[in-house]
């Protein structure tokens, strides 16, 4: 299948994502410049991490107005899989493709650490290669990943199974102590109502090989690939 990787000025996870999906998992992958408006040739879109447009004003606030985001929105509305990682998650929230906001980490520091993510819903196209309740060892790297939304939205997300990942300990226990940024309910990743748009703060593309500390991130890309192959068959 063919992944499209969006490059805004200031994106830096584009090359890492390319390496993970193409170099490691053997899929086609191409970069999409932020001025491009055609995404027909792609089977999945990745909005990678970085500091799009310098994250001036607010993370993702400028990127949402770029031409490519109109195309991404249309792609998502057609049901195409879209995954926003870190800054990509912030852009998806700013664009309204996902609900809620990502605020500054509650301790006000940038945080680069390995996290353990408990899979809360393994029936999405992004998690079908995992087992519900298992933990994925994936690093995070952000200053603004404190997910918040109003109480009704959180209730809807929880009730619908749209909370896909939560920060947990290595045994899968979700506790306030393990929460690295103050996110409500330890939320690390959510999907939209239709289940085809995922936003997550940790970086699956940075956990793609054992040599660099682990390959649990491949579960997410492999899930997307498996679902695409099945859909085509």
């Amino acid at each position: 299948m063919k992944f499209g990787i969006v490059v805004f000025p200031g994106t830096w996870s584009d090359r890492d994502t390319h390496h993970a999906v193409s170099g490691v998992l053997g899929q086609d992958a191409e970069y999409i410049w932020h001025g491009d408006e055609k995404l027909d040739q792609f089977d999945a879109i990745v909005l990678p991490g970085g500091f799009s447009y310098g994250d001036f004003l607010r993370c993702g606030a400028i990127a949402r107005f770029s031409p490519v985001m109109e195309a991404v929105t249309a792609f998502a509305e057609r049901g195409g899989p879209v995954i926003g990682i870190c800054n990509g998650f912030q852009v998806l929230c700013e664009s309204g493709l996902l609900p809620g906001v990502l605020m500054r980490n509650d301790h006000l520091e940038f945080r680069c650490i390995w996290t353990d993510l408990r899979v809360e819903n393994s029936s999405t196209i992004f998690t079908s290669a995992s087992i519900e309740g298992q933990t994925l060892h994936i690093p995070m790297s952000h200053g603004e990943g404190n997910y918040q939304a109003d109480a009704d939205t959180i209730k809807r997300l929880e009730d619908n199974g749209q909370v896909v990942f939560r920060y947990a300990d290595t045994n899968g226990n979700v506790t306030p102590d393990i929460n690295p940024n103050g996110s409500i309910n330890n939320i690390a990743g959510i999907v939209n109502e239709h289940g085809n748009v995922l936003g997550m703060m940790p970086h699956p593309e940075k956990a793609c090989e054992k040599l660099i500390g682990g390959d649990d991130g491949n579960v997410i890309f492999t899930s997307i690939i498996d679902n695409f192959v099945q859909a085509v068959v």
Binding site: W12, D16, E109, F110, C112, I113, K206, C208, L211, I212
Partner: peptide, 24 residues
């Protein structure tokens, strides 16, 4: 060093905190 990104570019084999960092 947890305030610095030491994973980006996905080459970091030995992270900060060892005697030397190792990159592939």
């Amino acid at each position: 060093y947890r305030q610095y990104d030491y994973h980006v570019q996905t080459n970091t084999v030995i992270e900060p905190g060892g005697d030397a960092a190792v990159l592939r």
